[in-house]
Structures are given as C-alpha cells and as structure tokens.
Amino acid sequence: MNKLSLIGLLSLVIRRDLVLAMRRRADVLTTLIFFVIVVSLFPLGVGPEIDMLRKMAPGVVWVAALLASMLSLGRMFSADYLDGTLEQMMLVPQSLSVLVLAKILAHWMVSGLPLVIMAPVLGLQFDMPAQALWVLIAALLLGTPILSMIGAVGAALTLGLRGGGALVSLLVLPLCIPVLVFGAGAVEAVVSGTNVSSHLSLLGALLVMALVFTPWVTALALRISME
C-alpha cells in the first residue's frame, strides 16, 4: 500500500484546517475581538493613570491572550468529532501524533498568531515602550504555541462532554501558569532593565518540551475519548 509521508500528512491536515477556518472566518474574528475587548476593559476597571497601566500591561495582555486561547479550544477537535472525521483520522495509516501536531499548528495559526500580531497595538494603548513591544511579540511567539499544545490535551480529554468549554479551562489554565509567569516576566524584565534572555530561554525550553510530549499525550487522550 502507498503510505503518506509525514510531511505530506502534516501539510495536508494544516491546509485542510486553514481552508475550513477561512470558510468560517467569523469564528477566528470572535477570538481576536474577545482579546481586544478584555484588554481594553482593564483601564476602565482600574482607572486611566498611565503609570499604573504601563506597569500592568504585560500581565494584562498575557492573561487576555490566555483567556482568548481557551475560547477557541472547543473548536479544535469537536467539529471533527461530531461529523465523524476524527474517526477517519484515527484510521490514517500514519502516526496519530503527527496528525495531532498538524491540527495544533493549524489551530495556532488561526487563533494564536492573530493575537501575536494584535498585541503590540494593544500594548500602545498601555503606553508600552518600543523595546518592550518587541519582547512582547517574541514572548507571545514562543508562548502561544505552548498554550495551543496544552490546550489540545485538555480539548482531547473533554471531547464530547457536556459543559466541555468551562471544564477545559478548569483543566488547562492551572497548567498554563508557567507560560504566563515567564511570558509576562520577560516583558517586565525589559521594562525594569534586567535580563530578558533568561525568561525567553525558559519559554523556549517549555516550547521544546511541549512540542515533544503534547502531541503524543493528545493522541493518547483522543484514543481514550473516542472509545
């Protein structure tokens, strides 16, 4: 039998998920708008003093990114689960982990990457200095894929459950705390003039770890949930 190469499978699934996302653009925009609104609510809640806002900015942007990425997790597997595509994907004569990795990457491109692009604009609302904005982009680029990966495990575990959306946040948010700490820490470090690279390298280490383990764990979780 002819088998699909790993790269072929990866690109096929990513292209498919991107096409589907483009045909349902509203879903993508909802996440992004949610992110913008949450960030914009903070000054209304705590007052417009620019010094305080500047100090809060990294944390606010990161927490909002975390919440926004939770919002889109429900879509990662549930549509495919409901129409039976996931069953077919599990019968693909190729590693399920690679297929899952492709779905995670596609999910990140659709829901994580727009946040990274939008974040500097929101940073300006909080009067963040240019250097901090660059670090914010770098930290989000390293951190948001980890959120998608940890989120994938949660989404796979809660597949098809009632109230899956709230449950997945309950499972995933505590596990994302290290990303929040190092991500927001990196931006704060550049503002306070301390060493940025240690934060970013820790984030990078987390990214590598997540890249190695989460696709495999997600595949296992999917098998458990499909039974």
Binding site: P174, L175, I177, P178, V181, F182, G185, L206
Partner: peptide
C-alpha cells in the same frame, strides 16, 4: 515546573 515558576 509550576513550583519552580512560582518561586521565580
């Protein structure tokens, strides 16, 4: 990892 990050 969480414990370390919180310490940090």
């Amino acid at each position: 990892i969480i414990y370390f990050s919180v310490q940090w």
